[in-house]
């Protein structure tokens, strides 16, 4: 049989969407790890809260009768702001007091935070699945490709690229970014040269949470539903992507997300979707055997 290029491209597009989603969330994991050396398990919940805030804000604004684009802009801003606030607060409550504690303590408090936020949304909002408004319209110029990928796929890819560029600019060229890199290299030294480490850590959490919120909005609009539990699975996959790419490395998170998304998509397309996760995680094991620090991670040399 001839190689079916059309099918390959379709699977590639589907992998790209999944990968972009994982990458957006993985960035938050990797940034926090790079700076404080902590796995923020509550990150998936921030993603879920971002989606919920957008849902609530857009429902409110629809009642007010605003045009669609204005509603999307305001609701997105609200969602980013709110999620950033949650990220900031979670760090202050659950991680800051444990900053000098053994590594396992903040890990447990992160899991606790994750469970807390899930149940808080379940009890405070609803345990049901809610229909999410379709915020991404069908673009006419994409109609010829409708069978291969949808407008929401396209917007997800574009947003990921734009977010990546902005993030790179922040980290490479702004004062905050410079301070972040310094804090990641050596926190004590950064403090000695006058960097306000607390503020930098807070900024990291806020940026990571904002990215998660953007991811949450895009994915919920793509799938059309939200639920208090969506953060858990997305979080686990994104965490895997971050480890795959080399945790602590920002390009690594994106590469890891894409590799994981592609692996799942092609495994489904060419083998069986029943083994989707088996392939994805076998790949993770293989990569970690040959590159223990992940694809783009730096092996940490033990300081003596």
């Amino acid at each position: 049989m001839d190689f079916d290029y059309q099918y390959f491209i379709e699977l590639f597009a589907s992998g790209l969407t999944k990968g972009s989603i994982y990458a957006l969330i993985a960035l938050g994991y990797t940034m926090v790890y790079g700076i404080v050396g902590l796995i923020n398990f509550a990150h998936g919940e921030i993603y879920m809260i971002g989606a919920f805030v957008f849902f609530l804000a857009s429902s409110l604004l629809t009642v007010l009768g605003l045009p669609l684009w204005a509603m999307i802009c305001i609701a997105t801003a609200a969602s980013i702001f709110w999620a950033g606030g949650y990220g900031y607060t979670v760090e202050k409550i659950a991680y800051k007091p444990l900053r000098s504690a053994p590594r396992l303590s903040p890990l447990i408090s992160a899991i606790g935070m994750s469970v807390f936020l899930q149940n808080y949304v379940m009890l405070g909002q609803t345990e049901k699945y809610l229909g999410f408004p379709e915020v991404i319209p069908e673009f006419d110029f994409l109609e010829p490709f409708a069978t291969t990928f949808s407008s929401s796929d396209f917007v997800i890819w574009m947003t990921t690229v734009i977010v990546m560029l902005i993030l790179t600019w922040i980290i490479k060229f702004t004062r905050t970014g410079k301070a972040m890199r310094a804090t990641a290299q050596d926190r004590t030294m950064a403090e000695l040269v006058g960097i306000n480490v607390n503020r930098i850590i807070s900024a990291t959490f806020i940026i990571g949470s904002a990215l998660a919120a953007v991811g949450g909005i895009l994915i919920s609009s793509h799938t059309g539903s939200i639920h208090y539990y969506i953060g858990f699975i997305a979080g686990i996959k994104a965490f895997t992507a971050a480890v795959l790419g080399g945790i602590g490395s920002i390009p690594g998170a994106v590469l890891g997300g894409l590799v994981l998304g592609m692996a799942e998509s092609f495994a489904t397309g060419y083998f069986s979707s029943a083994y989707e996760d088996v392939f994805a995680f076998s790949l993770l094991v293989l990569i970690l055997i040959f590159r223990p620090a992940g694809l783009l991670g730096h092996a940490e040399t033990e300081k003596v």
């Binding site: 379709e10 597009a13 992998g15 069978t147 799938t223 969506i230 397309g269 979707s273």
Partner: peptide
């Protein structure tokens, strides 16, 4: 004949497979 993963973020790969 396929089994899907519950709670996944996207099912477009399996949908492409159905189409094919």
């Amino acid at each position: 004949e396929e089994g899907i993963t519950q709670g996944a973020v996207d099912y477009s790969a399996i949908v492409q497979k159905i189409k094919r």
